[in-house]
Amino acid sequence: MGGPSAGWTAVPRDWFASFGEIVKFIWGVLKQILDLRVFKFSGEVLRQAGLIIMSSALVIWVLVFVVGLQCGIEGAYFSRAVGAPANAGTFAALCNLRELVPYAFGWMMAAKVGTGIVAELGSMRISDEIDALEVMGIDSITFLCATKLLASWLTLPFLYVMAVGAGFFASYLAVVEQIGEVSSGGYFLLFWMFQNPPDLLFSLAKAMAMATIIVLVGCYYGYNASGGPVGVGTATAKSMVLNLVMVHLIGMLGTQVFWGGNARAPIGG
């Protein structure tokens, strides 16, 4: 990314240049998990899982909550505008579960967990702690990256389902309590009618794909940081760029694959 003198195409060129390395790195981490070698460090996995819950859960829920409020008010005004104000619940159900909760989750994961990993691993790399691990005979990729990935797989599904709950609650607050568009019963009738367990599963799949990519990209940029304190800062910024784009691409592909040809709605068009 360089300084202010970086060229116009620096960002995409940088991605092309490091694409192969990132894929190789990701494969390296995944292999550690598939080989079950990561279980040598199950204590570290649990510690990382605890860290995710203690430090990231609350911010993620707060962001999802605010986004849920947003879904609620837009839903109320939009469904009033098409002449079907009772359908605010429909809009909130689709908007929350399928789109904005995964996005908000991805954004906050990238901001909180992704950059956190880069900062942590980057400063370890700068102060030669990673080399020290290698000297002690500990496989640093397994110990640092694979444990983080496994920890996020362990905790994030639960955290995500809680986040969906926070989003639902916020939409309910916005539509029923704040704007008073529909009655509580009428809201919930349509709200629950327009979603079913497979939808939750698809949404979860989307979010987990985002989370996996975010953790891996964070590990890559942190593990390969160089150039002193400035390098750590630049690596953190770079990881954020790539993560945001990946979150949006995964969101789009997920929507296309899961709901593209089939609205999965209880009434025909």
Binding site: V66, A110, T115, A119, E120, P229, G231
Partner: peptide
């Protein structure tokens, strides 16, 4: 070095929450 990374981390988190709250 860790301080700079942490600062970036906190900056994004605070900026996101502030932007969304303001947006609402």
């Amino acid at each position: 070095a860790e301080g700079v990374g942490k600062a970036v981390n906190q900056a994004v988190v605070v900026a996101f929450i502030a932007v969304f709250a303001f947006n609402y």
